[in-house]
Lab assay of single mutants.
Amino acid sequence: MTEYKLVVVGAGGVGKSALTIQLIQNHFVDEYDPTIEDSYRKQVVIDGETCLLDILDTAGQEEYSAMRDQYMRTGEGFLCVFAINNTKSFEDIHHYREQIKRVKDSEDVPMVLVGNKCDLPSRTVDTKQAQDLARSYGIPFIETSAKTRQGVDDAFYTLVREIRKHKEKMSKDGKKKKKKSKTKCVIM
């Protein structure tokens, strides 16, 4: 069974824990209790493949930012979460993405942009803004509501699919490099 290491990042209060708990335990946590770091595991079937999701729910508070490099190193894919009623959390996505790329030393890291709290009427981040940002990053965008469960499975499952595509691409690139290195030079 394939294991996928997913990391949920975003500013404090955007609903990272609520999304994760909704996926794992099928219930909505409405009281806000700032996370330092929590880890969850769940076995699911995605596109006919049974897999184990190892999900790291991270601290959004700035005082825990020193811990970010460590979990970013171990993560295979990242859910970059903002709240649709919090423009600052949307603007912060850029910083999370840049930090992930720096730590992973790669421009090509599996990510999904997630606009959470889409059940709320007080939207300050337009869907088109988020779609445009995701398009500019070359990553999928999904709106979710941890409260109603809308888009929750889709967000995590899409990230797994992005990781699969990335692994497939990397193995193809690896095979191309191996083929090239088999060419021999004969000096007579």
Rank of each mutant, 00 (worst) to 15 (best):
M111W: 06
E107V: 13
A83L: 02
P110Q: 02
R123Y: 09
E98P: 01
D105S: 10
A83V: 01
N86M: 01
V114C: 04
Q70M: 10
Y64F: 09
S65R: 04
M111C: 05
V125C: 11
G115K: 01
N116F: 01
K88S: 14
N86P: 02
Y71V: 14
R97S: 08
R73A: 13
E98Y: 01
D126L: 06
D119I: 02
S122G: 13
Q99K: 07
V125K: 10
L79P: 02
K104G: 06
V103Y: 15
Y64G: 13
V112R: 00
G77I: 14
R97M: 15
E107P: 06
E107N: 09
D105T: 06
I84S: 15
M67G: 05
V112E: 00
N86C: 05
V125Y: 10
R123S: 13
V125H: 09
G115W: 05
V125Q: 11
S122Y: 07
A66N: 10
D119W: 02
V109C: 07
C118M: 10
A83M: 03
V114E: 01
S106F: 10
E63T: 04
C118S: 11
G115S: 06
C80P: 01
V109S: 03
L79I: 14
D108W: 04
M67S: 07
R73P: 04
E63G: 06
Y64Q: 12
Y71G: 15
G75R: 03
F78T: 02
E98S: 05
L120W: 10
I100E: 00
S89V: 04
M72W: 06
R123C: 12
P121K: 08
L79A: 04
R97Q: 08
Y71H: 14
K88Y: 07
P110M: 02
D69I: 00
C80W: 02
S89C: 12
E98I: 00
C118R: 05
A66W: 05
I84R: 12
V114T: 01
G75L: 04
F82S: 13
V81P: 05
M111T: 03
N86T: 03
V109E: 01
I100D: 00
A66E: 12
I100N: 03
K104M: 09
C118E: 08
I84C: 15
S89A: 13
E98V: 01
D126V: 06
F90N: 05
Q70S: 11
V103W: 15
E98W: 00
F82T: 12
I93R: 00
D119S: 10
G77T: 01
D119C: 10
T124R: 08
G75T: 13
F82C: 14
D119M: 05
S106Q: 11
L113Q: 01
R97G: 04
F82G: 15
T74V: 08
E63Y: 05
S65F: 03
D126M: 06
L120A: 11
E107F: 13
M67Q: 12
V109F: 14
S65G: 09
C80V: 14
V81I: 13
D69N: 07
D126H: 05
D126I: 05
F82P: 01
M72G: 04
P121F: 10
M67D: 07
T74A: 12
I84T: 14
V109G: 02
M111P: 00
R123W: 08
I84P: 15
H94P: 01
R123P: 09
E76K: 11
T74I: 07
G75F: 07
P110N: 03
I84D: 15
D119G: 12
R123H: 11
A66T: 12
T87V: 08
K101F: 07
D69V: 01
R97N: 05
K101Y: 03
I100S: 01
T124I: 08
R97W: 15
P110F: 03
G75C: 15
A66C: 11
E76I: 15
N116Q: 14
Y64D: 08
P110W: 00
G77R: 01
D108P: 05
Y64H: 14
N116S: 13
Y71L: 14
S106V: 09
H95I: 05
L79F: 07
F90Y: 07
K117I: 15
S122P: 08
R73M: 09
G115A: 10
H95W: 08
